[in-house]
């Protein structure tokens, strides 16, 4: 079974591009997470970075790749065994 692994480079600065990959992804794969620790944050509004936390839902459309202005996203196709079949499947 096919599973897609998404890699976002650490140098990604999603705040500056306006979270384009998030807005474009039709499956909601990317999660914005605070870039600094709770205790260390400078203001009540933390800066965010992007992580592909829900890559399970990626269907490999690849829309995030050209949309990233600094080419910091990679989508890799992985073939997996039965383990993934045991998970409850989402709608599509």
């Amino acid at each position: 079974m096919a599973e897609y692994k998404i890699k976002v480079k650490k140098s990604c600065d999603a705040e500056s591009c306006g979270f384009r990959c998030q807005e474009a992804c039709p499956r909601g794969v990317f999660l914005a997470v605070p870039a600094e620790r709770h205790k260390e944050k400078q203001s009540i509004y933390p800066r965010h970075r992007i992580t592909p936390r829900f890559s399970y839902f990626c269907d490999g459309c690849g829309i995030c790749i050209p949309i990233c202005p600094s080419q910091r996203i990679k989508v890799v196709l992985k073939m997996t065994g039965e383990k993934i079949l045991k998970k409850p499947l989402a709608n599509k």
Binding site: P26, R27, G28, L31, F54, Y56, K87, A90
Partner: peptide
């Protein structure tokens, strides 16, 4: 909605 709900994603992706 399905696309955004983080609880739903945690349930479906990780059981």
């Amino acid at each position: 909605e399905e696309r955004y709900c983080t609880s739903l994603k945690q349930r479906f992706a990780n059981g």
